[in-house]
Design a protein around this nucleic acid. Structure first.
Ligand SMILES: [Mn+2]
Ligand SMILES: [Mn+2]
Ligand SMILES: [Mn+2]
Ligand SMILES: [Mn+2]
Lengths: 220, 220
DNA sequence: TATAATTTTTAGGTCACCCTAAATATTAAT
DNA sequence: ATTAATATTTAGGGTGACCTAAAAATTATA
């Protein structure tokens, strides 16, 4: 089934919303995520349904068909591999790769993406710690929790971030927090649920609950 | 000036035809090169003229404005750099890179292309021997002649090919001819202007005039 | 359960990019 | 200089992807 770049983006959006909510995806959430109008979404859902890449029942939300799922996971694979390329080979930093990958992901060539994967050493995670699905669309799972779930005294290694927007990542840069950084919870403030955290063996910083919820760590 | 990917392709086509003919480019030649109808070309020329990237006089053909020239040379720069990437880093061979580069070239990020250029070691020629313009759009010139201009006994090093289509390049592969290969003219047949040519220090092959006109060499 | 609020779809329209057929302008040939 | 051939543009139309406003369906609330 031949889909356009725009259609791929819609499928990816549906995949991501479903990943988060685990239920049929509604029109408005797609519109919100894609910065488009609900009417445009309905328009597109009809086309995607026609192409049999989604299961669509009027007013009842939408899920991906097996073919749609394959297209979406493949797109995510390409997106994340290009992000690795940009960071590891072209020395971009993690807050500057998403928008470019958003374009690169649509280049359609299996050969290209498999060569790229190989060239990069078959990475399993992207620069934000997100798993890169293999050619069959399987994601690698990892036991991870958000930093705010740690109790004082506990230590975690940063393995991922939930939010990917530039300002948040730039803020982490300023705190010297990156993937692999060790974070030790010193204390928690009950009032606003912020935490005092020791970053690697260096400085201590006060992190808001919002920040802590967006930092994914592996307990050690 | 913001141009779409399609508009960029038209500008590149105009640039290439003008490069070959050195005069105002006519509608039909653009249509032929782009596999589209003359009516569609006229349609696009109006848009491009509106955007001031071409100088267009009805019925009189078209030339690039300075801004149009900049867009076209920049596109060619991106195209050729991606081809180098595919060949030098991802181990593609020269007959399989053009179509993919045709998509990659439209990714718009100066930072991306400058990092790529740097990553590749600032190559001055692409895998087909075509010069890669610098960031200012300047092409490197090289004194080269087509193989058919050599006389028996003379030797040339292959520095480029005129045609870029897959079958031609695949044929060259089968003859063990690639960039850098030494070609020594053994004899010329007056009847069909074909040539017997020694390829490096190995075998001799009979090459048709059409092939010889497409091989660009530097005399040594 | 009836009404209000929210969500979703339909209606009708725009814009870029393409098409074919017909009309018009330019260039070549007699 | 006409006429014929060729090149180019105009006319009219289609599709994908968007939009706003209005209508209809669903869900929440009183
Ligand atoms: Mn991303
Ligand atoms: Mn995308
Ligand atoms: Mn090429
Ligand atoms: Mn192109």
């Amino acid at each position: 089934m031949n889909v356009t770049a725009t259609e791929e983006n819609y499928l990816k959006a549906i995949f991501k919303i479903n990943e988060r909510t685990n239920k049929a995806v509604n029109t408005n959430s797609i519109a919100a995520l894609m910065n488009t109008s609900p009417a445009s979404v309905t328009d597109m859902l009809k086309r995607l349904s026609e192409k049999k890449v989604i299961n669509y029942i009027k007013y009842k939300g939408v899920t991906l068909s097996p073919e749609g799922n394959k297209i979406a996971t493949n797109l995510i694979r390409r997106h994340r591999l290009w992000e690795v390329f940009l960071v590891n080979k072209l020395n971009f930093s993690w807050e500057n790769v998403h928008d470019i990958a958003e374009e690169l992901e649509h280049i359609k060539s299996d050969r290209l993406i498999n060569s790229l994967d190989n060239f990069l050493g078959n990475p399993r995670f992207d620069p934000h710690g997100d798993p890169i699905p293999n050619a069959e669309g399987k994601f690698m799972l990892r036991n991870q929790i958000s930093l705010d779930q740690l109790r004082p005294g506990q230590i975690g290694t940063l393995v991922g971030v939930k939010e990917h927007d530039s300002p948040f990542l730039t803020y982490l840069n300023s705190l010297n927090i990156e993937l692999g950084t060790q974070l030790k919870v010193i204390s928690k403030i009950d009032f606003d649920h912020s935490m005092k955290v020791k970053i690697d063996t260096n400085n201590e910083s006060q992190l808001s609950q919002k920040i802590c919820k967006n930092l994914l760590v592996k307990r050690i």
